[in-house]
Every structure is written in structure tokens, then in C-alpha cells.
């Protein structure tokens, strides 16, 4: 029984390997920054589009954490990824030859919104420093631990403005997991204050799915670069000469309004690694990157 089982196991893993290798499926992933249903809807659309444009099988793999997206990219189990600013920097550091190829129009000047439950009595302000007394001792939630707009930038501005670690400034600090969760938790009053991706806020607001009597924006960060498509350096060897360029062109030419709306972005524009230098420096400063 034992030997049989082992044989089956070995056989099946060989089978996985060969089917995947012969079909040469182009696999991509994305950081799970929003609700699963939305991600699957959005990226299966992208997979269909890319498959049509590139004439190869394209598959989207949903993952459960930002780190899992980075790891899958690093391990060459996916060749392309929709990363946030920070996850992109982390991934490109780990995979020599990989590069940022496209970003959303909005990603050149991305923002984080600080939002507060109206019962907390916190009033909006133009400067974060003006909110010191109102914020001190409140409860606060970031998004995912690896998020740029949900963790890195808000943590940077909190430390920079108040000179303290968030845990020492607020009475309770949590990580909701993603932006939609942050919105829901602050709306429900589980946390007094939260920080989230401004595009998620705007989209939910536009869809009418925010109870504006319960939650409001209290502060907006200055602009910084965020999301981008990052591709591995070795795709040309595997999928043929000029493949990287074809993927880049396909992404830049993505004009389907419904698909763009699902991101939500108004379009994609070229990007380079250098665009994300400010993110790398910030991450080093607060000790997320060595």
C-alpha cells in the first residue's frame, strides 16, 4: 500500500509538471487588496483579454496574502503580477531581471485616505498634525501588513508627524486584511479610524455602498506612486522573443471600459523601476525593508 501510494504521488507530481510545461501557460497573480469576488471578476477578465492578445493560455491565480503573491512571482510559478508599490519593490529586489512595465494613470499620484467613524467625533483637517489630540488614544486599523496605501504610507506619515510608533500613539492597532475590510470595519465602528486606498473609497462611494452618515474622510496623504504590473526577466526565453514587449503593449492598449472600471483605472501608462524609488526609501526608513 505504501509503495503504491508513493508511486501514485510521484507519478501525479510528474504529471502536473509535464502538463504545465508542455502547455506553457502564462500565469499571473495580483495582490489580494480587495474582496475576493471582485478580484476574480476583474482578473479573469484580464486573463481572457491577455489570452486573446498574446495567443497563449493565460491563467489567473488568486492568492490569500501580499506575501503569497510576491513568493509565487519569485518562485516563477507566476510570471506577471499586479503589485502595489511596496510589494512591487520587494518582488523586484528578489527577482533579478524583473521590471515594472505598466501602471495605472492614477498610480502616478496615488493617495491614502484616513477615514473615521462619525461617532468618534473626529473632524476632517488639512494637516495631520492638527488631528493629534483627536486621534491620540483612538483605535486604528491598517489594511494588509504588506500594503503600500493601507500600511506603508499611513504608517510613515503617522511616525513622521507624531514621532511615535502607531502602537504607542493609538490605543489599539489592527490589520484588517484589505481595503474593503478597512472601510467596513470603520463604518461599523469596530475601529474609530482607518487608512485606505483612495481609489477603493472613491469607487465604493460612486457605487453608493458607503454609509456616509457613519464614516467620513478626515485626512488625505500627499501623492506617491503605487500599483504597477511587474514582469519576470526570463519570459522571453520561455514564451518566445519579444514576449515581454507584447505583454507591455497589450496592457497599455487595454481600452475595455468595463475592465478598466473594475480596477478602477482610467487606463495604463508605461512605468519603470525608478518610479518607485520613493517607496523603497520610505520602506527602508520605517524598517520594512532591510
Amino acid at each position: 500500500m505504501a509503495s503504491n501510494l508513493i508511486r501514485k504521488l510521484v507519478l501525479s507530481s510528474v504529471l502536473f509538471f509535464t502538463t504545465a510545461a508542455s502547455a506553457e501557460t502564462f500565469v499571473f497573480t495580483a495582490i489580494p487588496d480587495e474582496d475576493q469576488t471582485k478580484l476574480v471578476e476583474r482578473f479573469s477578465g484580464v486573463a481572457d483579454y491577455l489570452s486573446e492578445q498574446l495567443n497563449v493560455d493565460v491563467r489567473y491565480i488568486p492568492v490569500k496574502s501580499y506575501a503569497a503573491a510576491i513568493t509565487a512571482f519569485r518562485n516563477n510559478q507566476v510570471q506577471l503580477a499586479w503589485f502595489g508599490g511596496l510589494s512591487g519593490v520587494q518582488a523586484r529586489r528578489l527577482v533579478p531581471g524583473s521590471e515594472a512595465i505598466a501602471q495605472g494613470v492614477e498610480d502616478e499620484a496615488f493617495e491614502t485616505y484616513f477615514i473615521a467613524n462619525t461617532n468618534s467625533g473626529i473632524k476632517p483637517a488639512d494637516k495631520l498634525a492638527d488631528l493629534k489630540d483627536q486621534l491620540q488614544g483612538k483605535t486604528f486599523t491598517f489594511g494588509s501588513k504588506g500594503s503600500t496605501s493601507g500600511r506603508l504610507m499611513p504608517e510613515f506619515y503617522l511616525r513622521d508627524t507624531f514621532g511615535k510608533k502607531p502602537e504607542d500613539f493609538f490605543s489599539r492597532v489592527g490589520f484588517s486584511g484589505n481595503h474593503t475590510r478597512t472601510l467596513r470595519l470603520v463604518e461599523a465602528g469596530t475601529y474609530d479610524v482607518g487608512a485606505l486606498n483612495f481609489q477603493v473609497w472613491n469607487k465604493e462611494l460612486g457605487d453608493g455602498s458607503i454609509d456616509t452618515d457613519s464614516v467620513q474622510v478626515i485626512w488625505k496623504t500627499p501623492a506617491y506612486p503605487d500599483y504597477q504590473w511587474t514582469i519576470r526577466g526570463d519570459v522571453n526565453e520561455r514564451f518566445g522573443e519579444g514576449f515581454k514587449q507584447r505583454v507591455t503593449d497589450a496592457l497599455l492598449n487595454l481600452k475595455d471600459p468595463a475592465l478598466l472600471e473594475s480596477f478602477p483605472r482610467s487606463g495604463f501608462i508605461p512605468a519603470s523601476d525608478d518610479d518607485y524609488e520613493p517607496i523603497r526609501k520610505t520602506a527602508e526608513e520605517i524598517g520594512i525593508l532591510d
Partner: peptide, 21 residues
């Protein structure tokens, strides 16, 4: 015995292992 022998075939495809990792 049927379950034990059959189960390995129902684990799903997953993604190929890259041994260098």
C-alpha cells in the same frame, strides 16, 4: 483502499514545483 489510492488524483493541479526554489 479505494479512497487511499484515489485520493492522490483529486488533490488538484496546483502549480509546478521549481526545484531551484
Amino acid at each position: 483502499p479505494i479512497y487511499v489510492l484515489g485520493a492522490p488524483f483529486f488533490l488538484g493541479e496546483g502549480l509546478p514545483i521549481v526545484w531551484g526554489n
